[in-house]
Design a protein around this nucleic acid. Sequence first.
DNA 1: CGCATTACGAAACCTGGGTTGCGTAATACA
DNA 2: TGTATTACGCAACCCAGGTTTCGTAATGCG
Lengths: 199, 199
Amino acid sequence: MPPRGRPRDTQVDERVLRLAAAMIFDRGYAGLSIDEVAEQAGVAKTTLYRRWPTKDHLAVAVVARLQADDEITDTGDIRADLVDYLEKIAAGLNHMRAAGGREGPSAGAVGELVAAAARHEDIGRLTREQYARRNALALALIERARARGELRDDLDAGALFDQLAGALYYRVMITGAPVDRAYAQRLVSSALERNLTCP
Amino acid sequence: MPPRGRPRDTQVDERVLRLAAAMIFDRGYAGLSIDEVAEQAGVAKTTLYRRWPTKDHLAVAVVARLQADDEITDTGDIRADLVDYLEKIAAGLNHMRAAGGREGPSAGAVGELVAAAARHEDIGRLTREQYARRNALALALIERARARGELRDDLDAGALFDQLAGALYYRVMITGAPVDRAYAQRLVSSALERNLTCP
DNA sequence: CGCATTACGAAACCTGGGTTGCGTAATACA
DNA sequence: TGTATTACGCAACCCAGGTTTCGTAATGCG
């Protein structure tokens, strides 16, 4: 059942990703050197490029391994559920922020990822699909809350989630302010109460 | 009054910035080549590096020239004013999106800028200051609206503006959906009505 | 066993950002 | 007029991402 020729050394993937992750973590994206990874992993550069066609692809692969596909929980309390989901997103962002090297106001890692998605068609497709999944989950959550009467009938679910998720990204990338549970609660309060059905 | 030595050729700045802008516009950030700019501008590479210490700095300088410092208008109608201001921000984003090369779902130019701000301390400081100014303007606008009774007393102005601006950036960078006047209106409707004082 | 197929390693190479050193041109000042 | 100062151009150079070529090792298949 395995393909025809010589099989790939599966240990290489693991070793390289671990090395690359470490390198990104303590020296940032710019500090990730393909030559150095290859040398430390004990493989030739060509072997790396056979698996990840560019440095961007390798970096994306590193980040992708960190992102546990966020599960959404629906407890029936839309407010708590949204805060929970935002916190998961924030956790991912904070993780990437750490991966950007020295922590600081603006998170280079997220920016590099956005740039990489713009540079390479396939990476762009990949990340867009991932965000589409997340978006669909959130919209479904909101939809269910509306169906059971927690939210106003005429609310704009798309705009609502854009605001919540967008505020997190805005903070991380632009203002550099922290994104934590307290902020998630502020956001949901600010954005949601309006859309709650009035008693 | 001029400094001691040989004066700088001021025409160089203008010529280089125009060339660089054109190059970024139709080939994207990666398509901006320092060597090529120097050659087409008829100057040595060292002359370029004397003015802009890295390619990032040159690109930021190009983008900075495009950003007319957005003025805020206070007509007394917070809803209309916010839509207006968001539209100005969106215009800037769309401009940069165009500058990212081929228009597409994710805007590389914004991502590159965020990444550049993370790479270079001075660029980060610069952009953070600019965003702080914008933020202060918006918060003051909201504050005035609250003072005259258009908004609830207990609203979270910081969270509100993060949501509005963040949603724009989220769309441009992540989902790639268009940001236009219609979307600005949807956002303000979704975010603001809750905070309006109830009749 | 022999062959097609695929993976690997090594080396040379190209490209573009970024640096360095040096000789020269333009200005202020004495 | 001469000197310190700064800008400029030129050429060589380093570095890292990325590519190409080629010889070799490991598998499946007939």
